[in-house]
Nucleic acid binder design. Structure first.
Lengths: 154, 154
DNA sequence: CTAGTTGCAAAGAGTTTGCAAGTTG
DNA sequence: CAACTTGCAAACTCTTTGCAACTAG
């Protein structure tokens, strides 16, 4: 992703201000392991936990702002919470495998799917803008790398 | 999809009752062109328009009930409204191409995508349960079969 | 300084639920 | 009739917003 300094400059250029809250929000996302996502609530509680004074409203506002600047992307697989992830520059569209047992979401990419999707959009006379696939699954009993699975397996 | 009579029988078997409201809801979905979806609000206003006395709450409740029986499926591409579609029996997982200009959703299937998804789930040691792909797109200027596009095109 | 930002609490949108009255089987 | 459903309105959840106090540049 773009260096933080560049992002901060971009903020100012657009007439926005670099507040401590925004700085921390950016930090959190830049340090988030690739493939992880945060909701406004989750972001809020992380920030609360680590001294940073922030309100839930500001958490929501920062996410919206950063998403509108193309720094974050809204992804929606947890039904009721919108989640946000960092947009990384090298990136090709990626998809999510969501464990219906524990809710864990893993990312993956696929050229085959991408190519097929482009072709399909074309066939409908549409131009593809974004692609999101959600693959709901349960982990197999033998290889239980899903924490919840171990609990429920009797 | 399964014959209405069978569905009604199934209702009774499970201790549910066949109320006029439920009967109409089922009718509406059975007569809906393949690939169309309804939200609770939309269903409610269709039913209101055509004499059937129904409340919004019952509209929500019927959708939930029918979804829990596997008659309807929840699909979520319009951000804020949950939509429901009829589950048709012959069906393979299908996907949605969503026009970001007018919101129109077209359905499509793809063996290639299905096969790829199965393989990927397997690679993660997961068993695929459901697959939903959302392909966001705009229609191409030359072939504007999207109503809104014509308006906005200056 | 002054325009942008924050926190708070109130307002909104979509959905669910408690309850008394009404229906189905 | 008894159990299930309905309509209504109130409650809930997630998110947005108005406003006065605050702050970055």
């Amino acid at each position: 992703m773009k260096p933080k300094e560049q992002l901060f400059l971009e903020l100012r250029t657009k007439g926005f201000r670099l507040t401590p809250q925004r700085e921390r929000v950016v930090d959190i996302f830049y340090n988030l392991p690739e493939g992880e996502h945060l909701s406004a609530e989750a972001l809020y509680s992380i920030l609360k936990r680590e001294t940073t004074d922030i309100s839930l409203a500001t958490s929501y506002r920062s996410l919206k702002l950063l998403a509108s600047m193309g720094v974050l992307r809204e992804v929606d697989f947890s039904e009721d919470h919108k989640q946000y992830e960092l947009v990384r520059d090298e990136e090709t569209p990626h998809h999510h495998l969501i464990c219906i047992t524990c809710g864990l979401a893993k990312e993956f990419e696929s050229d085959i799917i991408l190519k097929e999707a482009l072709g399909i959009a074309n066939g409908f006379n549409f131009e593809m803008v974004d692609l999101q696939m959600k693959l709901y699954a349960t982990c197999l009993p033998e290889k239980a790398d899903c924490p919840k699975r171990l609990e429920t397996a009797s």
